[in-house]
Design a protein around this nucleic acid. Structure first.
Lengths: 82, 82
DNA sequence: AAACATTGAACACATATGTTGACATTTGAA
DNA sequence: TTCAAATGTCAACATATGTGTTCAATGTTT
């Protein structure tokens, strides 16, 4: 069984979109989520793959459910398959 | 803003429950997901915190959506809050 | 233009995830 | 009880995540 990798660019773009929708900067979000600003930047650019813990902190800081972000990621994965 | 850590024991128990519901062993699942068997064992015991990528591989191998597992984790988090 | 806010990028560093192999322990079924 | 399958656990290792600092490259506001 072959499982393609979870494209980190999709993950990053979805997280960035959620952040912008809330109208907060990387600086502010990273502060709320208590993660490094450069780290958040790298995640949004798809250069770092977050742990579930980090995604949880980001989601909580954005006041959204982790599953909302994950569902959006799944939608984007499906869009690319077409 | 204080954000409590994502309890790895909850994550592990939910993953283990999904696996058992599918009736597959750690050995089989780790093979399908292409991750180490000892690693999967550690995750289920809450001694390792998976990346989103690893959760994706596990979910895909179990033929369930990542968001299903994540939603169940969120439900368990809420149950503990009460 | 100048000052400011935001993001990208490179660094060295600490810590964690994830790997393979080996062996002990538990569990369930015959 | 006995045997085999399943899981726990340890160790050594490679690789990645996540950190703080610093500076460049944007853009926007006055």
């Amino acid at each position: 069984m072959y499982i393609p990798t979870l494209d980190p660019k999709i993950v990053g773009r979805v997280i960035g979109d959620f952040r912008k929708r809330k109208g907060v900067s990387q600086e502010v979000l990273s502060g709320l989520a208590d993660i490094g600003r450069t780290h958040l930047s790298a995640i949004e650019r798809g250069e770092r793959k977050p742990t579930l813990e980090t995604l949880y902190r980001i989601a909580t800081a954005l006041d959204v459910k982790m599953s909302m972000i994950v569902s959006e990621i799944e939608n984007e994965i499906d869009r690319y398959k077409i």
